[in-house]
Design a protein around this nucleic acid. Structure first.
Length: 568
RNA sequence: UGCCGAGUCGUCUAACGGUAGGACAGCGGCCUUUGGAGCCGUAUGCGGAGGUUCGAAUCCUCCCUCGGCAGCCA
């Protein structure tokens, strides 16, 4: 889709229009921001970015690209108790990896602490903010409820002088945590609870990852965000739906300050089936060792997807495809899987690997004979060339490709049945060897038909099945990791707080340590991506070494046999 | 319960008063030395009731349903 050209650069075929495009195009028409588009991606560095953030990143940076504007990266680091540099670093890495560039516009809300403080004094001077001595509990009690107005704090009508004095002493560290707050003086009876004198500053004697111990008062999100946008001359401040009720407050602050006024726009956050999107719970999965790390290939984090074998292009394609709207959504994870299959189908070289090996001996093949066969690296892309495969007397095939007593629809190997070995010969299963104790099939004795070599056309024999194989003599051993969804329910996010651990899929990881890979694969490097024919797309794990190769399955191939089997 | 917001195929998403279209999932078929890929076909949808209009998913009214908000989190 990406290479389709259109006459209208504002409406590429692969990016359907949405309500945000319409707002921006209208603003451009009316010259609302002097024709500028400046968005921003404002993560809090309190965790790793996930696929939901990718939607926002693609939106914000994508808009900047589309309208020839700019997108800033800004860390919303106003709560030192939750934030760490480890997260800052990972976030920058992930945004870059997705293919976006904030150029010289890397900002931190903490860079604005001085300005924010000065503006807070301005609001105090204007009589629009006051120092409150109420405790957290008391503030909550005074706030009222959905149906009842709140009550004004007894400290609400302190004089400007008293407020300034107290606020300066708050900053100077004279008061303990929680003992005082600075509040905006708005309306304790507002139907919008965010307008009932919201807290602007709280006292926190905590070390900040960038400002150290310079501050012991920290701005709240609402007080920091709009003003940060304003300072950066952001035009369109795009956030998720839960901030809709904050917009009146966002507007109130910039208007009271009389500063440049960006426009907040809200969109629906991404929900994916069988996927946990809560940062807090993803942290728990890591801390409680349900997964190895933030970049465990089962995690919906950007780094997890990267390690799993997802490409930046596939994630961007996904973001484009799911669209942008204000209604709540639950995207089928199959949609994501489709995006990576589509990408890798075009780009990943085909290789042969047997992940659950079953030994096959070709009885009528001379013991030491080796025959070179030509294999195509990618049927979708002839420029990827061919490679040689070596056929030998002893081979491995996939255990799942043999059944002793198969149903009619099974087009693979069975006693007395024939099947083609990919790029090689048609073989016939003559006998089955078993372990006498367990009854397990240990080896197949087969014969090959010399007239049926691939590509020769010397035989008209047809078989329904073609299976992959690896030479026992030349193949190498490697570890393969297969992944399943981390949660067993469609919407783990909606599970009751106490029960969500029960919805974790205990079998989300299967390790196969005796996989047989074709020789070409033994030179793979971490990050390499390939298709194992008939099994799926795989990616070499970041911890793999030449002596200890590890392949992560990114996604299986579409499997119509699995569907047939299910119906049997 | 107050305020804000949202309801279009199974799931997402278009439509801007003029033929409800696309993607994914599903189903059927073709093709195939990957049960892959590709190709073709197919079913299913405007939350409800009124109204305005020659004509309504779109405008108006009422209703219903769902989501968000009562952190010194973001």
């Amino acid at each position: 889709m990406a290479d389709i050209t259109t006459n209208d650069p504002n409406a590429p075929a692969d990016k359907p229009s949405n309500f945000i495009n319409e707002i921006i195009e209208e603003d451009l028409r009316t010259n609302k921001y002097e024709g500028r588009v400046n968005t921003r991606f404002p993560p809090e560095p309190n965790g790793y970015l996930h696929i939901g953030h990718a939607k926002s990143i693609c939106l914000n940076f994508g808009l900047a690209e589309k309208y020839n504007g700019m997108c800033n990266l800004r860390f919303d680091d106003t709560n030192p108790t939750k934030e760490e540099v480890e997260y800052v670093d990972s976030i920058m890495e992930d945004v870059k990896w997705l293919g976006f560039d904030w150029q010289d516009r890397l900002y931190y809300a903490s860079d604005y602490f001085d300005q924010l403080y000065a503006w807070a004094e301005k609001l105090i001077m204007q009589g629009d903010a006051y120092v409150d001595d109420l405790t957290g509990d008391e503030i909550r009690q005074h706030r009222g409820t959905f149906s009842e107005p709140g009550k004004e704090s007894p400290y609400r009508n302190r004089t400007v002088d008293e407020n300034i004095d107290l606020f300066r002493r708050m900053k100077a560290g004279e008061f303990p945590d929680g003992s005082k707050t600075l509040r905006a003086k708005i309306d304790m009876a507002s139907p919008n609870l965010n307008m009932r004198d919201p807290v602007m500053y709280r006292i926190l004697h905590a070390e900040h990852h960038r400002t150290g111990d310079k501050w012991c008062i920290y701005p709240m999100y609402d007080w920091a965000h709009g003003q940060s946008d304003s300072m950066e001359k952001v035009t369109h401040s795009i956030c998720t739906l839960e901030f809709e009720n904050h917009r009146p407050l966002y507007d109130w602050f910039v208007e009271k300050l009389g500063i440049y006024h960006p426009q907040q726009i809200e969109f629906a956050r991404l929900n994916l089936t069988y996927t946990m999107m809560s940062k807090r719970k993803l942290l728990q999965l890591v801390e409680e060792k349900y997964v190895e790390s933030w970049d465990d290939p089962r995690m919906p984090t950007i780094s997890g997807l990267r390690r799993r074998g997802y490409t930046p292009a596939s994630i961007r394609a996904f973001a484009d495809r799911i669209g942008m709207a204000k209604r709540d959504n639950m995207i089928d994870v199959a949609q994501l899987e489709n995006c990576i299959r589509e990408d890798l189908n075009k780009t990943a070289p085909r290789m042969m690997a047997v992940i659950k090996p079953l030994k096959v001996v070709i009885e009528n093949w001379p013991a030491d004979s080796v025959e070179a066969l030509e294999a195509i690296n990618n049927p979708e892309d002839a420029s990827m060339g061919t490679r040689k495969l070596h056929f030998t007397k002893e081979l491995f095939i996939e255990r799942d490709d043999f059944m002793e007593d198969p149903p009619k629809q099974f087009h693979r190997l069975a006693p007395g049945k024939e099947v083609r070995l990919r790029y090689a010969y048609i073989i016939k299963c003559e006998s089955v060897l078993k372990d006498p104790a367990s009854g397990e099939v240990t080896e197949l004795r087969c014969t090959f038909d010399p007239e049926t070599r691939s590509g020769t056309g010397t035989s008209t024999k047809k078989v329904k099945g073609t299976i992959h194989w690896v030479s026992a003599k030349f193949g190498k051993t490697a570890e393969v990791r297969l992944y399943d969804r981390l949660f067993s329910v469609e919407d783990p996010g909606s599970v009751k707080e106490g029960d969500w651990h029960d919805t974790i899929n205990a079998n989300s990881l299967e390790i196969l340590s005796n996989a047989k890979i074709e020789p070409a694969l033994s030179e793979s490097k971490p990050g390499d991506k390939m298709q194992f024919e008939r099994l799926g797309y795989f990616c070499v794990d970041k911890n793999a070494t030449a002596d200890n190769l590890i392949f992560n399955r990114t996604v299986s191939l579409r499997d119509s046999w699995a569907k047939i089997k299910k119906g049997l």
